[in-house]
Computed example of a mutant assay.
Amino acid sequence: MKDRNKGILYMLLASLFFALMASAVKYAGDLPTMQKVFFRNIVGFLISGYMIYRSGASFQGTNKKYLFYRSLFGLIGVFLSFYAIDRLPLADAVVLNQMNPFFVLILSAFFLGEKIKKLQVPAIIIAILGVVFIIRPQFDYTVFPALMGLLSAVFAAAAYTIIRHLRLTDHPQVIVFYFTGFSVFSTLPFMLLGQFQIPTLFQLLALLSVGLFATIAQLLMTHAYRYAEAGDLSIYSYAKTVFSALLGILLWAEIPDQFSLLGILLILLGAYINYRAKLDPEN
Rank of each mutant, 00 (worst) to 15 (best):
D232I: 01
F202T: 14
I47L: 12
S15N: 09
G130D: 01
G29S: 04
D30S: 13
Y53I: 14
K26S: 12
L147E: 10
K26N: 14
R167A: 14
H165T: 00
A28R: 11
S71P: 11
A28C: 11
Y178P: 03
K65Q: 14
V25G: 00
G7L: 12
K6Q: 13
L269Q: 11
L107Q: 02
Y225A: 09
S48K: 02
L147F: 13
K36S: 09
M21Q: 03
Y178I: 03
Y178N: 01
M11R: 04
L31H: 07
A214T: 08
P199Y: 11
L212K: 05
I235E: 00
D257C: 14
Q35D: 10
D3N: 14
N283S: 13
Y275R: 09
S186E: 04
F243A: 00
Y66F: 12
F139S: 03
A230Q: 04
R164K: 15
A239S: 10
D3T: 15
T215L: 05
L219Y: 11
F110P: 09
G61I: 09
T169F: 13
I273H: 04
G248T: 04
F102V: 14
K26A: 10
V104D: 05
A214I: 05
T215V: 06
N274R: 03
P137R: 08
Y272H: 07
L96N: 00
I116Y: 02
I125T: 07
L212T: 14
F38E: 02
L262S: 10
I235H: 07
S186K: 04
S23F: 02
K65F: 06
A158L: 09
M191Y: 08
R167S: 15
M34G: 10
L269H: 11
F102H: 00
I135Y: 08
F38T: 00
T62A: 13
L12S: 00
I106G: 07
H165R: 12
Q218F: 08
L9P: 05
S48H: 06
L268E: 07
L13A: 07
Y272G: 03
L105V: 12
Y225C: 01
Q197H: 12
Y227C: 09
A224P: 02
L129H: 03
K64R: 15
T62K: 13
D92F: 01
A22Y: 06
L112D: 05
L96V: 13
Y10W: 15
L188F: 12
L96Y: 12
F177H: 04
H223R: 14
K278Q: 06
F102G: 05
Y225P: 00
S48I: 06
L12M: 15
I106K: 11
L168P: 04
A127W: 11
A239E: 04
K6F: 12
L16D: 06
Q120W: 15
I125Y: 14
L16H: 06
Y50I: 14
E114F: 08
V43I: 10
V132G: 05
K36D: 08
Y178K: 03
Y83M: 10
A28Q: 01
A91H: 08
A253N: 15
A159L: 01
Y53G: 05
F243K: 06
L9Q: 10
L151M: 13
Q197Y: 10
D3C: 06
L192A: 13
G231M: 01
P89R: 07
R226H: 15
K64I: 10
I134A: 09
V95N: 07
T200L: 14
I42F: 12
L72G: 02
A19D: 09
P145C: 11
F111R: 07
